[in-house]
Design a protein around this nucleic acid. Structure first.
Length: 643
RNA sequence: GCCGGCGUAGCUCAGCUGGUAGAGCACUUCACUCGUAAUGAAGGGGUCCCCGGUUCGAAUCCGGGCGCCGGCUCCA
């Protein structure tokens, strides 16, 4: 028999040869490195016989991403093995590899819950199984035999999995993998043996519902990660440490940007410096609004409950809305109000506040709108998941013919804005019609092709997420990648045919008849609060000069230089530099220390020498001591750094 | 909401098995007037998250609540 190799050459093998045989035939080094084999693109065990004429590719530790996926899946099995060693009677469920690691969900006997300290014991047992280099052995069994077997071993989750496989997919034969004492139901494939796991670490214990269903049993999930080398594991742990060091929840309050208080969980308090930052960001957004024909509006925070029934939020969103407790007795009826969770109904009321002509369209309404959503307590996370946030929202009302042009303008606005913030890598995702949706096929077809047309015309790489659109229309989402390589969804552009219907919006056409406008919801940054959180972590709190709330701090060497320091500060402020004087009776060293900790970009030391020369000695946070500069030149230098 | 962990001064944290609280930073005052990452001294500051229980006695043990942290699609 023969196998085709990736370079196109053919490899002659004996009858019934396996992936391992193929690797051995190529070379001893490959044979010892081999983990698995890709047969016609499908990942298989090395021990599986190869079909004649297949295209094969030997998977080694260098094969991305399959190799790590395989290794971590192996590690999950080893962890389950260790857990069963330590706590016999534990019920096992599933243990897949995930991005950055793996997990396994268990139900421990007698309501036992392992603590973080128990993780070390599990790690020790895992190390023993890895040391023993136990092979992964594949076996097959009929579904009924396997049910019988796992049933008698007291493994109800495995039984349920097989029963569902039988019922849903008509599976009759299942595969089983053994490593050491542990036999698991598993589709595979696996690496040759446990010894391939050169470095691993268990990270945390968490609760997770059986099959992600809140109505079902809560299992104990143990997370971990594994690598082919200690070095890679260390690098991974360093990345985690770096992410912790950049945590905006720590840096934000430390830098005087915002604070979070128990009195209002999930609703940030913006401190003076943070408010400056918000204003600066808003300024960049307003540049785009001005350039693209938007008009800015403000709509009320609290609106009649009836409006939310009309908008559909009552049906789809009620659980996450805040309602006013007091009933307001007005015009003889009890009225209840709700805090707005979205800005669109308000924008629609603005649209409907006067008769619109086709000559008014497209009408582009922008709003920095504060929305409140009663998110479940457990999901709150610093600025990244909050209960009140400001959307840089916009609603464009246009004719169907204008959709393409409007979407194009929105995409360009997003590009330009992200570039201003230094985010060059932008991922674009097109989400199409979901199962549950409203509107005609014709509307959806036209909307989706309009979005596609814009993406194609702008030569963008984009992914399609079928069925991930909103129920009222397809959308394009924009994800930015931060300095740590993490991806954040920010901008969005959604077509909507529902709101104009529900709010009976109309415009008078050139034909003198009434027509229904199309509505586009769009946000460039998404949530201002969340974007600040992303910026803090992206820059590790060291904002570029143009974004730094305080760009320069003037440090008088002794009290007698206070007057001159104030003059310098005034002159810089005149030139548009955000600057402060540190007039405390402290040593220069102390003032520099504090300014460095505050991550202030420029420190301007002024003493006798500078006062005589009408100058300042400049120290940059990034570059250190830059020497003495005359005040006039200084303002120019800072202005240049800030652009 | 659910599972696990945590909650001591503004912040970071000590406080062994129950005997009514401590450090560093920050803050206030005083002295020092200083040249590129922390000058020194003194002082103020606590409902040990809240409510209940056990106990002669609770920051500590038990129950409930609140808040914070890590998770809760990943289908053998």
């Amino acid at each position: 028999m023969t196998a085709k190799l990736p370079d196109g050459s053919a490899l002659e093998l004996g009858e019934g040869a396996t992936g391992a045989d193929a690797a051995a035939a190529i070379g001893p080094r490959l044979a010892s490195d081999a983990l698995a084999v890709k047969v016609d693109g499908e990942l298989c065990d090395l021990s599986a016989p190869l079909p004649d004429g297949a295209e094969i590719e030997i998977v080694t530790p260098g094969s991305e991403p399959e190799a790590l996926w395989l290794l971590r899946h192996d590690a999950a099995h080893v962890m389950a093995t260790a857990v069963l060693d330590l706590w016999p009677g534990t019920k096992v469920s599933i243990g897949p590899p995930i991005e950055d690691g793996f997990y396994y969900d268990f139900e421990f006997p007698d309501g036992f819950r392992p603590s973080e300290a128990d993780l070390e014991r599990i790690e020790e047992r895992m190390a023993a199984h890895i040391e023993a280099d136990e092979p992964f052995e594949r076996a097959e069994a009929s579904a009924d035999e396997a049910i019988e077997r796992f049933g008698s071993e007291g493994q109800p989750y495995k039984v349920e999995l097989i029963e569902d496989l039988k019922a849903d997919e008509g599976v009759e034969t299942v595969s089983l993998y053994r490593n050491g004492p542990f036999l698991d139901l598993c589709r595979g494939p696996h690496g040759p043996s446990t010894g391939r796991i050169k470095a691993f670490k268990l990270s945390s214990v968490a609760g997770a519902y059986w099959r992600g269903d809140e109505a079902r049993q809560m299992l104990t999930r143990i997370y971990g990660t594994a690598f082919f080398s200690k070095r890679e594991l260390e690098e991974h742990l360093e990345r985690l440490a770096e992410a912790r060091a950049r945590d905006h929840r720590r840096l934000g309050p430390e830098l005087g940007l915002f604070t979070l208080r128990p009195e209002s969980p999930g609703m940030p308090f913006w401190l003076p410096q943070g408010t400056v930052l918000l204003r600066l960001i808003e300024g960049r957004v307003r540049e785009q609004l001005a350039a693209r024909g938007y008009v800015e509006i403000k709509t009320p925070q609290v609106l009649d409950e009836e409006l939310w029934r009309r908008s559909g939020h009552w049906d789809n969103f009620r659980e996450e809305m805040f309602f006013t407790e007091a009933a307001h007795r007005e015009r003889g009826a009890d009225r209840r109000f709700a805090l707005k969770p979205m800005n669109c109904p308000g924008a629609c009321l603005v649209y409907a506040s006067e008769r619109r002509s086709y000559r008014d369209l497209p009408l582009r309404l922008a709003e920095f709108g504060l929305v409140s959503r009663n998110e479940r307590e457990g999901v709150l996370h610093g600025l990244l998941r909050v209960r009140a946030f400001t959307q840089d929202d916009g609603h464009v009302y246009c004719t169907p013919d204008q959709i393409t042009e409007e979407v194009e303008s929105i995409c360009e606005a997003i590009d330009e804005l992200y570039a201003r913030f230094g985010f060059e890598q932008v991922r674009v995702e097109l989400s199409t019609r979901p199962d549950k949706s409203i509107g005609s096929d014709e509307q959806w077809g036209r909307a989706e092709s309009a979005l596609r047309e814009v993406l194609e015309r702008q030569h963008r790489d984009y992914e399609v997420s079928p069925g991930e659109g909103t129920f009222y229309g397809p959308k394009i989402d924009f994800h930015i990648t931060d300095a740590l390589g993490r991806s954040w969804q920010c901008g969005t552009c959604q077509l909507d045919f529902q709101f104009p219907e529900r709010f009976d919006l109309a415009y008078q056409g050139a034909d003198n008849a009434e027509h229904r406008p199309v509505m586009i919801h769009r946000a460039l940054l998404g949530s201002m609060e969340r974007f600040v959180g992303i910026l803090i972590e992206h820059h590790a709190g060291r904002f570029p000069v143009w974004l730094a709330p305080v760009q320069a701090v003037v440090l008088p060497v002794a009290d007698r230089h206070g007057g001159y320091a104030a003059e310098v500060a005034a002159e810089l402020a005149e030139a548009g530099v955000r600057c402060r004087v540190d007039a405390r009776s402290e040593s220069v060293g102390k003032k520099i220390h504090d300014a460095e900790v505050a991550k202030c970009p420029y420190m301007l030391v002024v003493g006798d020498r500078e006062q005589d020369a009408r100058a300042a000695s400049v120290r940059s946070h990034e570059e250190g001591d830059l020497g003495q500069m005359a005040i006039g030149g200084l303002a120019a230098h800072l202005a240049a750094a800030a652009s």
